[in-house]
Amino acid sequence: MNISIILEHFYLVFMSVLFSVVVGLPLGVLAYLNQTLQKIVLWVVEILQTIPALALLGLIMIIFGAGKLTVIIGLVLYSLLPIVHNTFIGLENVDSGIKEAGKGMGLTKYDRLISVEIPLAFPMIFTGIRIATVTTIGVAVFATSVGGGGLGSIINQGIRTQNMELIIFGTLALMIMAIFFDMLMIWVNGRLVKRSSN
């Protein structure tokens, strides 16, 4: 039963980060390409982050009802900031000489983006995804409050029943998950950077 709760937690995190990338990456690119949208996009994702996680989940629950869908939508909104932000910054920071060279070789804006700028910005984007993942592992403890399960349920139960063992089990599982993904993604990023600098 404990394993299944860990897996449930992992499932919530995985789905959230996945959709967050699907939504956040294009938003970051949009912010990079369009000056007007840039301010709006960056402002909205920052505002989203100022709403307390629990409140955000509660609000979404009203529309979508209690359950995993609500949790995933909430976590996606919550983890947009690092992904959008890093995508935008990563693209902005691509060496202007390289951008110029792409232009000079007659690549279209779209072509430059796909074949030069996004690949070069990718380590930065990936760092955003890493931050989102680690944060989401922690924030997902609120899932249980809106019927989404996960490790938060064990911790809440532990606090309610004053059961230290349960609290520690839940916390350790969370910490290990967070550290594991953090280190794994740092390692992957190291490989990415190494490959692209060759």
Binding site: T50, I51, P52, A55, L57, G58, L59, S145
Partner: peptide, 30 residues
């Protein structure tokens, strides 16, 4: 604190109460 409204709102499925907690909290952060 503002969490009170949010917790009660979630427990009782009360839209308005959740907002009553969430909006001031977000505004406070901003």
């Amino acid at each position: 604190g503002l969490g009170e409204f949010i917790y009660i709102g979630i427990a009782s499925n009360n839209n308005a109460l959740i907002l009553l907690g969430a909006i001031p909290a977000a505004l406070m952060a901003i």
